[in-house]
């Protein structure tokens, strides 16, 4: 029943809901990684920034790519640099420690204060990648073979892992994580989000934009449905252009901000014409 641990309740610019807060707080208290999944553009990456901001912790990012290996996150032994240095003899190349470069995970472990470690888009890497991280995430320590040195996390970092569900993640990995699936915001929440980004937006434009936005999202044949970030951008463009009202019609201003695939633009025009349009 104690409340002596920091709790996360969102930030002024990052709105949360009960479910998300419960998940984040579970991860904080249980010191387990938080796995966040959800549609692109629902603010998975922003969540880590918001947590770092709300709890006043430094944020360490690790953007995973298809070529990323687990080892890269811990440390890299820069053999090439050492080889270079050996040629000129002006460095002490016997001290291997100077060629050990800590990766993002290593930095988070070595940090003198509790840090937020964001492992972004973990599913981009090879299938085995998450499994390779398990041991280090569990024990929060690792061994540098070259120097016989052990890096132990003094403060277990808050680990936030995001995934686009491109690949299935291994069960063993999933079991160790607190899981949260970010829903697409409801209309009410979306209004609040829009208000956060555009505080002085006229209510009428906001209403109309949201109306059009959700109508477009409901269209059945879109390949990539527009998401929060697209809506926020779209409203920004509308305001910059001084457009005061929008209506769902074939010539929606700056439609390209919302729909980014040509097929989607065609599908959009098609559906508005009620399928009556002749195909050429």
């Amino acid at each position: 029943m104690s409340a002596d641990f920091p709790r996360f309740h969102g930030t002024p610019t990052y709105l949360t809901n009960e479910g998300l807060e419960a998940s984040v707080n579970c991860a904080l208290v249980l010191e387990r990684p938080l796995l966040v999944r959800g549609e692109p553009g629902t603010g998975k990456t922003l969540l880590a920034e918001a947590i770092a901001e709300a709890l006043a912790m430094p944020l360490i990012r690790w953007n995973v790519k298809s070529t990323t290996r687990a080892q890269d996150g811990l440390y890299v032994y820069d053999t090439v640099q050492r080889l270079y240095d050996s040629r000129f003899g002006d460095h002490d190349i016997d001290d291997i420690r100077q060629y050990i470069k800590l990766g993002p995970m290593g930095k988070a472990f070595a940090s003198t204060e509790r840090a937020v470690l964001l492992i972004d888009e973990v599913d981009k890497a090879d299938v085995e990648f998450p499994n390779d991280l398990l041991n280090e995430l569990d024990r929060m320590r690792f061994f540098i073979d070259e120097t016989q040195q052990e890096i132990v996390a003094e403060h277990r970092p808050v680990v936030i892992i995001t995934s686009n569900a491109e690949k299935e993640l291994p069960d063993a990995f999933l079991r160790r994580c607190v899981f949260h699936f970010i829903d697409f915001p409801t209309r009410e929440l979306m209004e609040q989000i829009v208000r956060v980004h555009h505080p002085d937006l006229e209510a009428s434009l906001s209403d109309q934009a949201l109306e059009a936005f959700y109508a477009i999202r409901d269209m059945s044949r879109l390949r990539k449905r527009p998401s929060t970030s697209e809506l926020v951008d779209w409203i920004a463009v509308l305001r910059r252009a001084g457009i005061g009202e929008v209506k769902l019609e074939a010539k929606l201003p700056f439609l390209g901000t919302l729909l980014k695939k040509e097929q989607d633009l065609v599908a959009y025009a098609d559906q508005l014409a009620g399928g009556r349009r002749w195909r050429s």
Partner: peptide
């Protein structure tokens, strides 16, 4: 009970398929 729902969901469910 609401809190319990969210906490249990965060800890028991590991993939959106199980939601």
């Amino acid at each position: 009970l609401d809190g319990f729902y969210y906490v249990a969901r965060a800890l028991m469910v590991h993939t959106e398929a199980h939601l």
